[in-house]
């Protein structure tokens, strides 16, 4: 279980995440909505321990234990798997070079390779010259190479991805994440058509302002945009 308690993060004295509280139970599938720049990606990077963000308040816990002092890879070892909005390309490092790091044989992962259709990417530089959908497929594959991942953080899995790839990614995810916790961010909502989520949260200006049924919240956003969420938040205050 991943718990975020009163998390406040600053960059150059400015709050970019404010008093975030979130509890994702084992096996829960949650979606995080919010307009571009609201802090969704930042929240994921803070959970992963990236970018050396200044956490001024609060805590992040895995199964009740704080992970704030853990390195990125130690957080992965504790069960958090992360896919960023944009894949990073590294010159000269091929996908098969990464596979070697896990001492995984081709035959052991052949099914996953076929299911994600990434055979042709194995001997190419990671994420180099790939379309949005191809990058997401590759990233899902690399996630599958990690052992003991219990929580997936998937940032904008459906952005820049065509319908065919959304379908493929959703099917793969359905099969591989049955017993795992999942937090997906989206601002297009496309993945919701294919993938049933348990809970939804809306983030505005670094704060979580709403939570509820994923479909209802999404329908609300679709009908009135995030402006509707802003007004709703004001009314609550």
């Amino acid at each position: 279980m991943i718990t975020i308690k009163n998390l406040t993060v600053e960059v150059e004295g400015k709050k970019i995440l404010e008093d975030i509280n979130l509890k994702i139970k084992n096996g829960e599938k949650a979606v995080l909505f919010g307009p571009n720049g609201c802090g969704k990606s930042t929240l994921f990077r803070v959970i992963m321990g990236m970018n050396s963000y200044n956490i001024v308040k609060g805590d992040i816990l895995i199964d009740g234990k704080s992970i704030l002092k853990k390195t990125i890879n130690q957080r992965v070892d504790l069960g958090i798997g992360y896919i960023a909005q944009k894949g990073v390309s590294i010159k000269g490092v091929k996908l098969e070079d990464l596979m070697e790091q896990y001492e995984i044989e081709y035959d052991d992962v052949k099914k996953k390779i076929d299911s994600l259709g990434i055979e042709e990417f194995l001997d190419r530089d990671i994420n180099y010259n790939l379309s949005g959908g191809e990058t997401k497929r590759l990233e899902l594959f690399t996630l599958s190479l990690l052992k003991n991942i219990s929580t997936y953080l998937l940032d904008e899995l459906d952005s820049g991805v065509d319908l065919e790839n959304i379908d493929r990614i959703s099917k793969y995810l359905k099969n591989t994440s049955k017993k795992k916790s999942l937090i997906i961010t989206t601002h297009t909502g496309s993945i919701l058509k294919e993938f049933k989520m348990d809970s939804a949260y809306v983030m505005l200006n670094g704060k979580i302002v709403c939570e509820g049924n994923p479909i209802e919240i999404w329908e609300c956003i679709k009908s009135g945009g995030y402006e509707k969420c802003v007004n709703c938040d004001r009314r609550k205050k």
């Binding site: 990236m50 390195t71 990125i72 070892d77 990073v88 990464l98 790091q101």
Partner: peptide, 15 residues
């Protein structure tokens, strides 16, 4: 960015 990306794939900083 490249180091952190690979760390998020479970590799320690040296690897």
């Amino acid at each position: 960015e490249e180091i952190e990306y690979l760390q998020s794939k479970g590799l320690d900083e040296k690897k």
